[in-house]
Amino acid sequence: MIHRILNHSVDKKGHVHYLIKWRDLPYDQASWESEDVEIQDYDLFKQSYWNHR
Score class of each variant (00 low, 15 high):
R53T: 10
L6A: 03
I2Q: 00
Q47F: 09
I2V: 06
R53D: 11
L25D: 07
H8Q: 02
S31M: 00
H52I: 09
S48G: 10
H8C: 05
L19T: 03
S31Y: 04
A30S: 09
L25T: 14
L44F: 10
S34L: 08
N7K: 13
N7W: 06
H52G: 14
A30M: 05
V37Y: 08
Q40F: 06
R23F: 08
V10G: 01
G14M: 00
F45W: 09
N51S: 13
W32H: 03
L25I: 08
H52P: 08
S34V: 06
H3Y: 11
I20H: 02
D11I: 02
H17T: 15
H17K: 15
D24P: 03
S9W: 10
K13Q: 11
K12L: 10
A30P: 08
E38H: 09
I39G: 02
Y49W: 00
R53P: 07
Y27S: 14
Y18K: 02
I20Q: 01
P26W: 05
R4A: 06
Q40W: 06
Q29E: 09
L25M: 15
S48Q: 13
H17G: 03
N51P: 00
L6K: 01
L44H: 13
P26C: 04
Y18C: 06
P26K: 06
V37G: 10
H15K: 15
V10K: 11
M1K: 15
I2M: 03
I39H: 08
H15L: 11
W32K: 00
S31E: 03
Y27R: 14
S34G: 12
N7C: 07
D28G: 11
E35M: 01
V10M: 07
D41Q: 10
Q40E: 13
E33V: 14
N51M: 14
S48F: 10
H52S: 15
S48A: 15
H15N: 15
K12I: 11
Q40K: 14
A30C: 11
S31A: 02
Y18T: 00
I39K: 01
M1I: 15
W22D: 04
R53M: 10
I5C: 00
D43T: 08
I20E: 02
K46L: 05
D11W: 05
I39S: 04
H17R: 11
V16M: 13
Q40L: 09
H52K: 15
Q47E: 13
S48R: 15
S48N: 14
L44S: 14
D28A: 15
D43G: 11
N51V: 08
Q40D: 13
Y18Q: 00
L25P: 08
S9Q: 12
E38K: 13
Y18F: 07
A30H: 05
K13C: 09
I20L: 05
P26M: 03
D24W: 08
L6V: 10
D43R: 06
R53I: 07
L44Y: 12
Y49K: 05
P26H: 09
S48I: 11
E35Y: 03
H8L: 02
L19M: 10
D43I: 01
H52E: 15
H3L: 07
S9C: 13
H3G: 14
Y49E: 02
W50Q: 00
D36T: 10
H3C: 12
E35S: 12
Q47I: 15
V10F: 10
I20P: 01
Y27E: 10
L44D: 11
I2A: 00
E35N: 09
F45T: 05
V10H: 06
H8Y: 03
D41K: 06
K46G: 02
M1G: 13
D11H: 01
R53Y: 14
Q29R: 12
I20Y: 02
E35V: 02
S34C: 15
L44C: 09
S48C: 13
L6G: 05
D36F: 09
R23C: 09
S9A: 08
A30D: 03
N7Q: 12
D43L: 07
I2L: 01
W22Y: 03
N7Y: 07
H3V: 05
F45Q: 04
A30R: 08
K46N: 01
D28F: 06
N51H: 10
D41L: 02
V37A: 15
E35R: 01
D28P: 05
H17M: 13
H15C: 11
R4T: 13
L44Q: 12
L19G: 05
D41Y: 07
Q47L: 08
W32S: 00
H3M: 07
H52Q: 15
H15W: 05
W50R: 04
D36C: 08
N7G: 08
L19I: 03
K21M: 12
R53K: 10
L6H: 03
S31W: 03
F45I: 07
Q47T: 14
R53V: 12
W32I: 04
D36W: 08
K13W: 07
I5F: 02
W22L: 03
L6W: 00
H8S: 04
R4P: 03
S9G: 06
W22N: 00
D36E: 12
Q29A: 12
P26Y: 08
W22H: 04
I2F: 00
R4S: 12
Y49A: 03
Q29Y: 07
D36R: 10
I39Y: 10
I2K: 02
I39E: 00
Y49I: 00
I5M: 04
R53W: 13
N7L: 07
H15F: 08
R53L: 12
V10N: 04
W22R: 02
D24E: 14
I2N: 04
K13Y: 10
D43S: 09
I39M: 07
E33S: 06
L19H: 02
D11E: 07
V16D: 05
W22Q: 03
I20W: 05
K46R: 03
K13T: 08
